[in-house]
């Protein structure tokens, strides 16, 4: 027990320092600073990347449905929190069906639960499939969800293909950090529990795990549902961050971005996913911005620099990562992993 406490002291202290730092930053920097955009979006992506890693990296289920579950979360949150007086304006083409609002925390939780419920349903047929078939089937489900939400007969609930807006948002950067932090902590606890060990056993060798008495389907379904729950919550956070939400934005390219974050961070490392998502968001929103603007030295224009070049450079960097640094930033290690663990790992091999 003593050891456990010692191990927890350093991360806990760092979390405290982090939150204090964020608090001070918010008091000192102007609120329009790009840093806050990066921090907010980074925290949201960190959560969804961690949830995807739980599935792809720890359970070995190659699922590409993350954008679909985020979509469900975002819509659930928005639908239940638009204030009554705003509803006639938002639902201008339909008679809104849901005549009440829920408090924000309840709505966020409901967003997660709705995504989890869908995942549990979808998982029944889909999780019996093997690796790449699973990937394409989950990708397909994400597309179906997107099409169904835009269906006009559902307009009184989802507002058809029009956007949802005017729901409560967050202003402080502490809010997404707190929610994402708690969720990621839960994911970490889960991975270190006996369930987590079962997930890893399934990843390493399904047949061996089954022979050891693991109920494959039950545990896959569990991992899938939990991962989707957190994807739903991050979807709700994303809706709050963007302040409007529209189904057409949740394309498969969104899932690809999250997958690339997971790969860059290291498949099988939650802290890697967190670091990678902040780097990814910072690069795409901030550090590489200069590549998008034309630059002159006197009359000489630096070639290539114009709108869109940033994303080209960015994707080349990602390809180099994927090809030459396949283990990503963290491999399958975690920050603050105790040396004792490592020794144990060596002994096992």
């Amino acid at each position: 027990m003593k050891n456990v406490k010692k191990e927890a002291v350093l991360p806990a202290a760092l979390v405290l320092v982090l939150f204090a730092g964020l608090f001070i930053l918010e008091r000192t920097l102007p609120s329009s600073s790009i840093l806050f955009v990066v921090l907010k979006k980074g925290a949201i992506y960190a959560l969804v990347a961690a949830s995807m890693n739980l599935l792809n990296g720890f359970t070995g289920l190659f699922s590409l449905g993350q954008a679909g579950f985020m979509l469900i979360g975002a819509y659930t949150y928005a639908i239940f929190t638009i204030p009554l007086e705003m509803k006639p304006i938002v639902y201008q083409y339909y008679d809104y069906a849901i005549g009440f609002t829920l408090p924000v925390p309840v709505a966020i939780l409901l967003a997660g639960l709705a995504a989890a419920a869908f995942a549990a349903l979808i998982g029944l047929p889909v999780l019996k499939l093997k690796s790449d078939y699973l990937a394409i089937a989950t990708l397909g489900f994400a597309e179906i969800i997107r099409a169904v939400i835009q269906y006009e007969k559902l307009g009184p609930i989802t507002n058809g293909s029009n956007m949802l807006k005017s729901y409560p948002k967050f202003s402080s950067v502490l809010f997404p950090f707190a929610v994402a932090g708690v969720c990621i902590a839960v994911i970490l606890l889960l991975i270190n529990s006996s369930y987590g060990r079962v997930f890893k056993a399934i990843r390493d060798d399904e047949i061996a795990a089954e022979a050891m008495g693991v109920n494959l389907f039950r545990h896959k379904e569990l991992a899938f549902t939990i991962s989707s729950f957190f994807a739903g919550i991050s979807g709700a956070l994303l809706a709050m961050f963007q302040s409007t939400v529209q189904a057409s934005a949740f394309k498969s390219s969104m899932t690809y971005e999250i997958l690339l974050i997971v790969v860059i961070g290291g498949i099988g490392s939650i802290s890697g996913s967190v670091i990678a998502s902040f780097l990814f968001v910072a690069c795409s929103e901030w550090w590489l911005r200069f590549l998008d603007t034309e630059l002159y030295f006197g009359s000489f224009q630096i070639p290539f620099l114009r709108s869109g070049f940033r994303m080209v450079v960015f994707s080349v960097v990602i390809m180099i990562m994927v090809l030459f640094y396949r283990r990503g930033i963290m491999g399958d290690r975690e920050l603050f992993q105790h040396r004792r663990d490592k020794k144990k790992g060596e002994a096992r091999q």
């Binding site: 997958l259 994707s315 390809m319 090809l323």
Partner: peptide, 12 residues
Amino acid sequence: ISAIGVSYLLQN
């Protein structure tokens, strides 16, 4: 994943 990366690169 590499294939997804190529797809991302070509689109960008």
